[in-house]
Design a protein around this nucleic acid. Sequence first.
DNA 1: CAGGATCTACTTG
DNA 2: CAAGTAGATCCTG
Length: 172
Amino acid sequence: MQILPESPLVAAPIETRFGVFIARFSEIGLAQLSFPHESQPIATCSIVSPQIRSWCNQTEEALQNALQNGSAQGFPPFDLRRGTEFQQRVWRALQTIKAGETMTYSGLAAAIYQPTAVRAVGSACGANPIPVLIPCHRVLAANRKIGGFSGGLQWKELLLEIEGQDGFVRLI
DNA sequence: CAGGATCTACTTG
DNA sequence: CAAGTAGATCCTG
């Protein structure tokens, strides 16, 4: 079930103490956030609407805070149209997990009233287009193991550590 | 149709 | 305990 207008996105680099993240905006909000990558792509367009500039500032502010103490606030609107209905439900549920708290894949499945779709929930987490701000890193496996992370487990560990959750057991 | 960021129950060192 | 196995489950491309 895709509902995609497929509009072009405006990319903006965001410098943090952990590297340069890249945020991409559509006409209705932040659509994607990627972790620092080796390659330093991006043809930066300096002429963007004040609307996007504003969202960009909010994103930067929120990201900086998230990476500093885990307390992020003042988010720009999110454009999650890329996701299927199922994925959007999961991503919405993710946003209810507060910083410093933690959840399990099965708990999340139960939260969206599909207690048996545990595995599918894991996949949906992996498809989260806005990591960090949509806290998929706060989801651990039921056995107190860390589970996986598409951006690389190091990031998940780092984020959890920043939020004071370091009691989990590493999986591998 | 195969393949995941899972889970539970069970069996073995 | 830790580690490995089997089967159940269900969204995706």
